[in-house]
């Protein structure tokens, strides 16, 4: 392929990536170092609100943004350096908690509370997703050809459901006297409140995530299983290898690149855990990094939002993903180099 044709093919996609990925990233990066705010003045204002028969009027000092001659709010943007990052990380408070050895206090600071859950969530679901995915793939592979189609369809179903809907469904099944909680209560003969403490909510979230993502892993592994060298498997059987030994010494090494791939995708996805928090409205107990960005961005009823802190937090989230990906990426890189 000459370079012209190559450019014509790749050009549009590079352009799109610059426009939709690189540019927003740079803009968020820049915003995390700046703060834009209206200029307020304090004025005395009389406000009247309805009572039942009469009005109640109060006169008070209120802060009110200054408007320019076109009626637009005058804003100023100033460079604040790492201040927004400091506001998110709260390093002094965190350091004090660490030097006191008080894990408990550290886990009440928003960012660290979110980081703790995000990491736990990511690292616990990872082996479960890979394990369940492999299990389902082997199950499909061993199913009789006649029922293989339906089995694939059924095992893919959880992956098709929109995440928010899936989370809400779990919420309704377990919240209060939801069907499944009621069943468990009847079975164990005791009162169960799954949304009344952090750990049960976390377990539900992880179960949901594994249920949701395992089919994706399964379908990739199933594809990989089709290319396992049948001769090696047969000779292994002749040599008297058990099913487990065949899996351990032939199938898994063969699938390793795919396992790394699935692990990487899962790390990236689950580090941005969000739907679970919103769907369970669990922010009283459990929050995640991505939810924190969302919370900073959501305007309150008076219209204030914290865009700088949101930017800083999303940059930190990205850095976290990159750090998590270093290990599997290094391995892929080594394999890649070794292969040539």
């Amino acid at each position: 392929m000459n370079s012209r044709t190559f450019a014509a093919f790749v050009g549009p996609s590079v352009f799109m990536m610059l426009l939709f990925i690189a540019f927003p990233l740079v803009s968020v990066f820049k915003q995390s170092f700046y703060v834009t705010q209206p200029i307020y003045e304090t004025v005395e204002k009389e406000t009247c609100t309805p009572g039942f028969l009469t009005q109640t009027c109060v006169t008070e000092q209120v802060s009110q943004p200054k408007l320019d001659e076109h009626g637009e709010i005058i804003t100023q943007t100033q460079y604040v350096g790492l201040q927004s990052y400091r506001n998110v990380l709260e390093p002094e408070r965190a350091w004090r908690a660490i030097s006191d050895g008080s894990w408990h206090v550290l886990s009440t600071i928003n960012f660290w509370k979110a980081l703790r859950f995000t990491l736990t969530f990511t690292l616990i679901t990872l082996p479960l997703v890979v394990g369940c995915g492999l299990g389902i793939a082997i199950l499909i592979n061993n199913a009789a050809r006649a029922i293989r189609g339906p089995v694939i369809f059924v095992s893919l179903l959880p992956f098709i459901i929109t995440p928010v809907i899936g989370v809400l469904a779990i919420n309704w099944l377990f919240r209060g006297d939801g069907i499944l909680t009621a069943m468990m209560e009847w079975w164990l003969n005791r009162d169960i409140a799954l949304f009344a403490q952090a750990w049960t909510i976390e377990v539900l979230m992880m179960l949901y995530r594994v249920w949701h993502v395992a089919p994706f892993a399964a379908i990739i592994f199933y594809a990989g299983l089709q290319t396992v060298n049948q001769d090696s498997l047969e000779s292994a059987v002749i040599d008297g290898a058990t099913r487990w030994q065949r899996l351990k010494y032939i199938v898994i090494p063969h699938l390793m690149p795919l396992i790394i791939f699935v692990a990487m995708i899962h790390l990236m996805d689950s580090y941005r855990v969000f739907e679970e928090i919103v769907g369970f409205s669990s922010q009283g107990y459990v929050i995640s990094l991505q939810w924190l960005t969302f919370d900073y961005l959501t305007p309150d009823q008076a219209g204030n939002r914290s865009i700088s802190r949101a930017s800083a937090n999303s940059m930190l989230t990205m850095i976290g993903v990159v750090i998590l990906l270093i290990l599997p990426l290094r391995r892929t890189w080594r394999d890649h180099k070794g292969g040539h």
């Binding site: 802060s63 009283g284 107990y285 919370d295 309150d300 009823q301 008076a302 219209g303 204030n304």
Partner: peptide
Amino acid sequence: SGPMGIMHTALGNGLA
């Protein structure tokens, strides 16, 4: 008021 909006959010997130 403007400050009250922020206070309401801070309360809502911090009371739990």
